[in-house]
Amino acid sequence: MTESASPRVSTPRITVLNVQPGDPPFRLVEIDGEVVAEATSMTDVLAVAALAGIRVHDLDDPEVVRWVGGGKFHWRLR
């Protein structure tokens, strides 16, 4: 099997975890496996990434951001 025929598995540097209870509800943001912030919106995720020196051009790119427990529009408890 050639390298190009093997599946590519990437680990995004940014992981946004499940919504947590709070006022307002928030999601924890990990960068390189370390919890670095609480986010209440997509804007917060972009700001945290920028502070870490990560440029995010597409929040839907699974090689850049991994969304756990809901996508970028999920910010409230179900």
Rank of each mutant, 00 (worst) to 15 (best):
His57Gly: 09
Leu17Met: 07
Thr43Ala: 12
Asp58Glu: 10
Pro12Ile: 04
Leu51Thr: 11
Gly70Asn: 06
Ser6His: 05
Arg76Gly: 03
Pro24Ala: 08
Thr11Pro: 00
Val36Leu: 10
Ala50Tyr: 02
Pro12Thr: 10
Gln20His: 15
Ser10Met: 05
Asp58Phe: 10
Val16Leu: 09
Ser6Asp: 09
Arg66Ser: 11
Asp58Met: 05
Val19Glu: 09
Asp60Gly: 13
Lys72Cys: 03
Gly33Thr: 08
Gly69His: 12
Ser10Arg: 06
Arg55Tyr: 13
Ile54Ala: 01
Asn18Gln: 12
Gly69Arg: 07
Ser10Phe: 09
Ala5Trp: 14
Gly71His: 14
Met1Glu: 12
Arg76Phe: 11
Asp58Asn: 15
Pro7Leu: 09
Thr40Asn: 03
Pro25His: 04
Val29Asn: 03
Leu46Pro: 08
Val19Arg: 01
Arg76Pro: 00
Val48Trp: 00
Phe73Gln: 07
Ser10Gly: 04
Leu51Glu: 15
Ala49Asn: 04
Arg13Ile: 04
Arg27Glu: 13
Met1Lys: 03
Lys72Asp: 06
Arg76Leu: 11
Leu59Arg: 02
Leu59Val: 15
Trp67Glu: 04
Ala5His: 08
Val48Asn: 00
Met1Phe: 13
Thr40Ser: 03
Ser6Asn: 07
Ser41Gly: 08
His57Arg: 11
Ala5Asp: 13
Phe26Thr: 06
Pro12Ala: 12
Thr43Gln: 11
Leu46Gly: 08
Glu63Met: 05
Asp23Ser: 10
Val65Arg: 02
Asp32Thr: 04
Val45Tyr: 08
Asp23Asn: 12
Glu3Ala: 14
Asp32Ile: 02
Glu30Leu: 01
His74Phe: 11
Phe73Glu: 10
Asp32Gln: 06
Gly71Glu: 15
Val16Ile: 11
Val68Ser: 03
Asn18Gly: 01
Arg78Lys: 09
Met1Gln: 06
Ile31Asn: 00
Arg66Lys: 09
Val65Cys: 08
Glu38Ile: 02
Asp61Thr: 03
Ala39Asp: 07
Val64Gly: 01
Ala52Met: 03
Gly71Ala: 12
Val35Ser: 09
Arg13Met: 05
Leu77Cys: 09
Arg76Tyr: 13
Pro12Phe: 06
Gln20Lys: 14
Asp44Ala: 09
Val9Ile: 15
Val16Phe: 13
Gly53Met: 09
Glu63Ile: 01
Ser10His: 05
Asp58Thr: 05
Thr40Trp: 01
Asp60His: 13
Val48Cys: 02
His74Pro: 00
Trp75Thr: 08
Ser6Pro: 00
Ala47Arg: 11
Val45Trp: 09
Val29Ser: 03
Arg8His: 10
Pro25Gln: 07
Asn18Ser: 08
Arg78Asn: 10
Arg78Val: 10
Ala52Ser: 14
Leu46Asp: 12
Arg78Pro: 13
Ala5Val: 04
